[in-house]
Design a protein around this nucleic acid. Structure first.
Length: 430
DNA sequence: TCTGGGGTCCTAGGACCC
DNA sequence: TCTGGGGTCCTAGGACCC
């Protein structure tokens, strides 16, 4: 679309406590109970049911810090199961697509819809129908915020989520100034979309505490201290739409594959395995989008939370002679880079690979002197990808990634892949 | 006597998002 | 014992060129 007028009506649909809700859909004993989902490596808490929030369990806090509260209150704990969440997301988005032709898939659990011309005399009713349809067909609860800019729709959504009295839908698109200001006054700056920790601190330092006060700051100050991004946020809060609906996915610019290790890595062989593994994952995603990488970088780091240990981190990148999507070549480049920055004598906690300068794969020039080598490589990758698609992502892999992978991440509490693996479907007892 | 300066490109770092 | 991963965009400042 890319076009909007001052009368565009945006709705933001946001799944409530998405990962926790996904776990609940397939596990009725979790209904009404506190549930949390952990990040990779079972490191931090990244999703909480309302019951878990009520216990004071905060977002992004390390799991081990909350263990006491969790055990005392019988909180159900899950490692993140992205296969399940990705599949549930696809189902929710498919349903939302039927409610408006103009949709932006903003994240795994959020979408913007443009609602102009659709039931304009009863937008709230229309959105309540969206909500109950998603609930009925997927079991996922959503909240909906409606306004004339995306930033205001975010604010409306916050209210819809926090105050059940609104029935899950808040419409700010057609309220008078006084009422809108009332909402803005109750919104602390750090909860505004586009204002993070640093800017919130800066604003507080300048005695600006809520969204209403922020809209009255001088534009010059905002631009100077928060860049044009901050200025856009300010204008959007005032009601001027500056952020368009982006309804066609933009080509990706970088692909990152990185992990914290399940336990420290202290020898080159294991780091070599890990980096090979990350290249393998990144290259598979590259090919899935029909892209090739013109630049690769590798990085590693020790555990920054353990200042008593010797610290070291480094990264290095290399521009390839020609873009490629061929895993074995990318692994060779990555390992050559790794050798330049790897130093013995450290306990490494993290490593990763970043693919840059991505170009569409079909414009890569055929090297006329390689005797069709590129064609053979392409055919090989296609075969590997389709086998891994059918049989699981590590069925065929380069030997350099290792067999045992002692460094692999922890996933102590993983739920089954209910929707995407024949072996793990729910069993119904009759 | 007097030793430029403007434009462009690139990169690293910092901010934000979910 | 234990602290996520994957992205985007913007800006300042250095390198380089003429």
């Amino acid at each position: 679309m890319g076009k909007y007028s001052s009368d565009t009506i945006f709705a933001l649909i946001d799944c409530n406590n998405f990962y926790a809700s996904c776990e609940r859909v397939f596990n009725p004993k979790l209904w009404g109970k506190p549930v949390i989902v952990l990040s990779n490596n079972d490191g931090c808490i990244v999703a909480r049911s309302n019951e878990a929030k009520a216990l004071g369990i905060k977002m992004a806090v390390p799991y081990f810090e909350m263990k006491d509260v969790i055990e005392k209150n019988n909180v159900y704990v899950f490692s993140s199961n992205y296969t399940l969440y990705g599949d549930m997301s696809r189902r929710v988005m498919n349903i939302l697509s039927t409610f408006s032709p103009d949709i932006e898939f903003y994240s795994i659990d959020e979408a913007f819809l443009v609602l102009n011309g659709i039931f304009e005399n009863n937008i709230t009713g229309y959105c309540k129908n969206v909500r109950s349809t998603v609930m009925k067909w997927t079991g996922i609860p959503v909240s909906i915020g409606i306004a004339k800019t995306k930033t205001l729709a975010k604010i409306a959504n916050e209210y819809a989520k926090k105050h059940p009295i609104y029935g899950g839908v808040v419409d700010l698109s057609n309220v008078d100034k006084e009422k809108k200001d009332g909402f803005l006054k109750k919104m602390v700056v750090e909860d505004i979309w586009g204002v993070g920790k640093q800017y919130a601190r800066l604003l507080n330092f300048n005695r600006i505490y809520n969204a209403y006060e922020f809209t009255y700051m001088s534009e010059e100050w905002v631009k100077k201290n928060m860049s044009v991004v901050g200025l856009r946020t300010q204008l959007e809060l005032r009601g001027t739409a500056c952020i368009e609906l982006s309804d066609s996915p933009q080509p990706q610019k970088n692909i990152l594959a990185s992990r914290s290790f399940g336990r420290p890595v202290e020898c080159f062989k294991e780091m070599h395995e890990a980096v090979s593994q990350y290249v393998t994952r990144a290259a598979a995603r590259l090919r899935k989008q029909n892209l090739a990488a013109g630049n690769i970088s590798v990085f590693l780091a020790t555990n920054r939370f353990k200042p008593e240990e010797k610290q070291y981190s480094n990264s290095i990148s290399y521009s390839l002679p020609e873009p490629t999507d061929y895993t074995p070549d990318l692994i060779d480049y990555a390992i050559a880079l790794l050798k330049k920055i790897y130093k013995d004598g450290y306990k490494y906690k993290k490593g990763g690979v970043l693919l840059n300068d991505l170009v569409p794969n079909d414009i890569i020039q055929q090297n006329m002197f390689d005797g069709g080598l590129n064609i053979k490589k392409k055919a090989l990758m296609k075969t590997v990808d389709s086998i891994n698609m059918e049989w699981g992502k590590d069925t065929l892999k380069n030997a350099s990634v290792g067999i045992r992978q002692k460094w692999d991440m922890r996933r102590q509490f993983c739920s089954p892949r209910y929707t995407t693996s024949w072996n793990e479907l729910l069993t119904a007892r009759i």
